[in-house]
Amino acid sequence: MTDLPERAPEKRLGLVIDLDTCVGCHACAVNCKEWNTGGYHAPLTDEQPYAAGTDGIWFNRVHAFEAGEGAAGRTVYFPRSCLHCDDAPCVTVCPTGASYKRAEDGIVLVDEDLCIGCKLCSWACPYGAREYDASAGVIKKCTLCIDRIYNENLEEVERVPACVSTCPANARHYGDFNDPDSDVSRLTRERGGYDLMPEMGCAPTNKYLPPRPARKGGEGGDEVLADAESPGGVLGWIDRLLSA
């Protein structure tokens, strides 16, 4: 439905992305691509795959930023995908009802059969979550792997989004934010999970965990080791150790 659900969704499924352990390996992005190119939005078309101007549909893209200056700064890898916002402007701008937010779990989906390819939803999304497939003439986007998470043809442990199951750095977590005991709720609470661009008023479901502060000493008061007491010369301490 183009209107957002009248009542808050029963579940709020989404992701927590841990910027403290993401090493920018692009595993999530590529695994997402391979699952989804045969999935709900198949195919994720690639234009000019072997020439200049190569450009394909990806639901998940990994950026790299530097924050701060010099050695004191940080390099932070930043995976970006649909945040399945509670107040999703991409849904309300849709003129056809192709974009909708599911009442049961809050997932924002596009029904390609209804999409006229006006791209307005991609304009409305501040996060760049929607991509236009020119060959299909429709918008495609992250489905939170709706064809995995409920898929009875998969083993239960596999019923998580592809990006989560493949992440080598354990930087992606999936769960129900309405459940205070879920991993995602707990991590958000404990690690200060935050919204991207809260000023946009989209109330994103997905949360990002900040990089932990750098640790450049100060722990245990270490500064410089004291000289070994050495009455017997530089190796005297060994004698004492051995004769002790």
């Binding site: 439905m1 999935g39 192709a98 029904d111 059969d113 064809d147 409920y150 898929n151």
Partner: peptide, 12 residues
């Protein structure tokens, strides 16, 4: 008003 078809959640 709500034309989207339900998503197939258990494809082969």
């Amino acid at each position: 008003a709500h034309p989207a078809a339900p998503a197939e959640t258990s494809p082969h």
